[in-house]
């Protein structure tokens, strides 16, 4: 079974600087993979290379085909992406914005309408369809970008810090929905995040620094490396940090992600 994505000795330089330094890894279909690392570690550049936005010169294989933006792309419609420095919205109405990718892919009229309706109702944002771009809050715009990445049924989702503008409470709901959606549609998800709380739903995590992979493993095991993560300048989610520190003082054993569970364990 060929991995859906294979990265082989990927290198990328810009302005004389090495941004990606000989990276190799592969991703199986249906996995949720996270990329974390300090600022300027190459997360955004790596995701852009994977999504075919930056040229990668025969270093990236998607299924059986090489991804090479210079020679002409392999099936880029397989990808759905969210980048923060992305293109601004093109249309005044949210509905029109969602139609655009589908029109470009020649969906029939009824298929387009049904697709958009299903998607917004799954994410519980049906109210978006009557709105104009300028009426959306930053939070809602971020959710819309997510929908735009999903609307054309991609098989690989590439998300670069997509939840930045979404408040914590709403974010939990959005992530839960996203996880469910990707699982139901057997999608592969690549997520980069500056907030380690966001990666908890991913199975596997790569830690980047200076364009290279410095740590990798199950997300759970990576979050246990509190000393190394802190050395890289990364902030641990509150409950993970608290768990580690209490473990250090031998008051607790293991990581408790839910406050109620930890309080229960400490003071039965």
């Amino acid at each position: 079974m060929v991995p859906i994505l294979q990265v082989k000795s990927l290198r990328y330089k810009a302005g004389g600087k090495t941004i990606i330094d000989d990276l190799s890894f592969s991703v199986e279909e249906g996995r949720f993979v996270a990329f974390i690392g300090p600022s300027s570690s190459g997360k955004t550049t790596l995701l852009k290379l994977i999504a075919g936005i930056l040229p990668s010169n025969d270093s990236i294989l998607v299924g059986y085909g090489y991804l090479n933006a210079k020679k002409g792309s392999s099936d880029l419609s397989k990808f759905g992406c969210v980048f923060s420095d992305g293109i601004p919205f093109l249309f005044e109405s949210v509905y029109q914005e969602l139609l655009f990718p589908l029109e470009n892919l020649c969906y029939t009229k009824s298929d387009m309408e049904m697709r958009i309706k299903d998607l917004v109702s799954f994410f519980e944002v049906s109210s978006f369809l009557d709105k104009k771009q300028e009426d959306l809050t930053q939070e809602e715009k971020a959710i819309l970008r997510l929908l735009l990445a999903l609307v054309h049924h991609p098989s690989i989702l590439v998300l670069d810090d997509p939840f930045l503008m979404i408040g914590r409470k709403r974010k939990k709901q959005v992530i839960a929905k996203l996880k469910q959606y990707c699982q139901e549609n057997k999608m592969t998800l690549l997520l980069s995040s500056s907030n380690l709380e966001d990666i908890l739903f991913c199975d596997y995590t790569y830690v980047l620094n200076d364009g290279a992979i410095v740590m990798e493993g199950s997300t759970k095991s990576i979050l246990e490396e509190d000393v190394n993560l802190k050395k890289l300048g990364l902030e641990l989610p509150f409950m993970v940090d608290l768990s580690h520190m209490l473990s250090f003082y031998e008051i607790l054993d293991g990581v408790y992600l839910e406050m109620e569970d930890m309080v229960e364990k400490l003071w039965k």
Binding site: F238, D241, L242, M245, L246, I251
Partner: peptide
């Protein structure tokens, strides 16, 4: 968080 940890330590 460090002050919290010290406080928890006193109460377990």
């Amino acid at each position: 968080i460090l002050d919290l940890i010290k406080d928890v330590y006193k109460h377990v």
